[in-house]
Amino acid sequence: MLTYVVRRLLHGCVVVLGVLLFLFLLFFTLTDPDDIARRALGEKALPAVIAQWKANHGYDRPLWPWRGGRDSMLVEHYRRMLTFDFGRSDTDDAPIVDRLRHGVGPSLALTVPMFVIGLLLSIVLALFVAFFRETYIDRMGVLLAVLAMSLSVLLYIIGAQYVIGKLLRWFPISGFDADPRVAWRFLALPVLVGVAASLGGDVRFYRTVFVEETGRDYVRTARAKGCGEGRIMWVHVLRNAMIPILTHVVLAVPFLFTGSLLLESFFGIPGLGSLTVDAINGNDFSTLRTMVYLGSLLFVGGQILTDISYALVDPRVRLS
């Protein structure tokens, strides 16, 4: 078991190094630093100013280690990313780390309730629909799920803002406050939208898992033993269905930290999602780079978590 975890960790490290290489190729070789500088300083910036800017941001060094040795951009890129020294933003020279620190709180305030409510709601709904499989309730449930899946998130957001925020005036359309007593009013609407937007797909996925499990031989055995349908669902089916569901769920946990791009920027929540959107709009490559790197770090971590939780739930993995 321990070697298994350690092996997953090693594999994760290799993947992170791969991600860094990919980012380097993408952001340093495929993009011209002059371009980045001009976008930051304006089209008409003087060559000298651009050169100075490039020197400040470390864009003037040789790309590859066989040219520049330890001073090359590749080595520097790996060194800084691996030591979490993200440097300054390309656009306004603010330290990226500070921004990240400020952004995590609001992001979590949005994503955690969204995640918990969404998960519970979709599992309960899926169990309900699966319990009535092959009846009208089931067919209606699936139909609604497909309808919900076909709607763009943008439409969810715009619709909710217009109907609930503007017409009904239940909650403010956008904004944020650090004080939790006030903040919940701002968060209610985005959480609602976030839950609604992912509900359709999740319910359908979980339902499929449940329905497939209910067709298995051990369920028949349980029935032959005299188990009630409720007990079969809760004790037998749910435990087995947890295995695929866990993969789905645990992997989502790390992304709670990176926040939601769309919801945050639409609802004016100053989290990491908003930060990223600002970076995109301002052509801030260094921030974007950092976000992708952090995202994949979290993903790799989530994958290892999934593997461990797999082993915890499934005795076949745990005991092999």
């Binding site: 290799v14 791969g18 490559f285 974007l288 995202g295």
Partner: peptide
């Protein structure tokens, strides 16, 4: 497998955005 896990580990939307910005 290495290429796949590398690509899969980057957040899809961010990767997409980065690619479009660069390409």
């Amino acid at each position: 497998f290495f290429v796949m896990s590398t690509l899969a580990s980057m957040p899809t939307l961010l990767l997409l955005i980065a690619l479009v910005m660069v390409l």
